[in-house]
């Protein structure tokens, strides 16, 4: 199994470290040529969604990744990554991959003074440490989306098919359970990128 991590901007090294600790091979996507390698899953890290969306497009990776996602490539999006996956962004005209049928709100808790941490249940996982950094939340989700976690009445984690979207940052904690959940989604169907495309 090999995971590709978008490395155009943001906290991608933290995801690499988490995967390495789990003994999973991963590599960085910085430009179009990096897509020539085969991979079984994708991670879209935290950072600034405006920057990442723009660079994924201008560095020639956006269309192919979007096609792969539409065809079922497993993906984990954290914070900015969730925004890239959302079909609608309520306070922004931009749309990116738009492969998760839900609506997110950017910077939903305000500026950095609104950043916070909590420990909460996520799906079947108890006491997951959650770091919210200028985070979005999910305002609404369409049928077929499984709500995994709510904090203060707002949805902060959801799964749609093999796409996992989190408003918070499991990669900043020592808790690898959500990465393991993502890897189980990847293992659920180990078709490689080529197989998905075919």
């Amino acid at each position: 199994m090999r995971i590709a991590i978008s490395a155009v901007q943001g906290a991608f090294i933290e995801h690499q470290q988490m995967l390495s600790s789990l003994g999973v091979e991963c590599f960085e996507l910085r430009q179009r040529a990096d897509l020539h390698r085969s991979f079984d899953g994708l991670i879209l890290p935290g950072g600034e969604s405006t920057v990442q969306g723009k660079l994924l497009r201008e560095l020639g990776m956006f269309d192919e990744l979007q096609q792969l996602l539409r065809q079922g490539l497993p993906v984990l999006g954290t914070c900015a990554g969730l925004i890239l996956l959302a079909q609608h962004i309520s306070n922004d005209e931009q749309r990116y991959f738009a492969t998760m049928p839900l609506t997110v709100r950017r910077n939903a808790y305000g500026r950095q003074l609104g950043s916070f941490s909590v420990t909460a249940r996520c799906g079947s996982l108890e006491a997951v440490p959650m770091r919210f950094i200028r985070a979005p939340y999910i305002e609404s989700a369409e049928a077929g989306v499984e709500i995994l976690a709510e904090v203060g009445g707002k949805i902060v984690a959801a799964r749609y098919q093999r796409q996992l979207g989190l408003a918070f940052h499991p990669e900043l904690t020592g808790d690898s359970r959500l990465h393991q959940l993502f890897l189980s989604l990847v293992r659920g169907d180990s078709r490689t990128k080529e197989a998905v495309l075919a």
Binding site: A7, Q9, A11, V51, I133
Partner: peptide, 17 residues
Amino acid sequence: ADRYQLNKELAQMLKGG
């Protein structure tokens, strides 16, 4: 201490930028 940690983490999100 948690506020300081959150503030260091915002800087982590700016990396590569």
